[in-house]
Design a protein around this nucleic acid. Sequence first.
DNA 1: ACAGCCATGTAACTTGTTACATGATTTT
DNA 2: AAAATCATGTAACAAGTTACATGGCTGT
Lengths: 174, 174
Amino acid sequence: MLKYALLALLSQQPRHGYELKALFEKTMGGLWPAVNIGQVYTTLARLERDGRVKGRHISQDDRPDKRVYELTAEGRAAFREWLAQPSENARIKDEFFLKLAFAQLARPEDLKDLIARQRREYLQAMRALSDLAANHTADDEIVSLLIEGAMLHLQADLKWLDVCEERISKKRET
Amino acid sequence: MLKYALLALLSQQPRHGYELKALFEKTMGGLWPAVNIGQVYTTLARLERDGRVKGRHISQDDRPDKRVYELTAEGRAAFREWLAQPSENARIKDEFFLKLAFAQLARPEDLKDLIARQRREYLQAMRALSDLAANHTADDEIVSLLIEGAMLHLQADLKWLDVCEERISKKRET
DNA sequence: ACAGCCATGTAACTTGTTACATGATTTT
DNA sequence: AAAATCATGTAACAAGTTACATGGCTGT
């Protein structure tokens, strides 16, 4: 995933690893888990190995030297292709889905607690997003959108927990 | 992730790799991407290496021999610990989030198409879920719940696409 | 002197993916 | 005779995580 974000940033202009990390985080406005700087460099190395980018050494007198990467034609094509194909969401890979299903199999008596704990987690995440939204200057339109998207997700998750709880207590009555 | 699902299934009784794969898929009712059988075996090998399970060879006359795994005390503890801690959802790792944010940076003129394509994808996934729900005998309560959860997610995603589209066209007017 | 930012990387490891390889038994 | 199901695995690779290692410049 990071791979394509780097290609996107490099499609604007050549940049170096340290800069890419900062831009990535700024673009995602703290909504994406922080990227380890090490991963940026390994990803760049792999992209260069695969002919997607080309790095070149830049000497600097006042600062440490750096290595600036630019997109190749292939890299540009790979980025465009990524944008062109829709992101898969048909199959779900949400950990809580798994947890619920297998808890029900193995420890059905724990379901109520499991759901309660998860609700607390979602509510906390919701609060964190509200804070982010409040502290967020409206200059960055896209980050506001991402925050709203994350909130819609969480609302759906919370609603689902309600459905689960209801269904489970109903079953127990039978 | 698969790791914990296997521990869950083994917490009921000892089982072998082939059986675990089938049970996993039955439990998730086609909602989780199919698991590669090879991964089941490598995961079991790693679990054994880490002392979570213990395998033993069973000779069979009528069928190929098999290797049955059972949980160790450590494995049981690891499973319980997994259940006890809430699944993280605070930070989002949805590919479309990334795509939108970086498309806006690099190719803002493509945003409309990007959203339209993604909407088609979500609607198609929605239809697939409806079919699943229809063909689904109500005997398996948990699978019904998972289907509902997936639908709630998709509804949130679709709603978000509407918000994005609106916001973007509004911006263009300015 | 020390903290913090600028800058680059490697090593070891985990999880998951794809493809390959083998072979028996059962059903059509 | 062929296809499907039962059964096990390995090899190579991709992506991501954590920790370690290095070193210069800037501001307090």
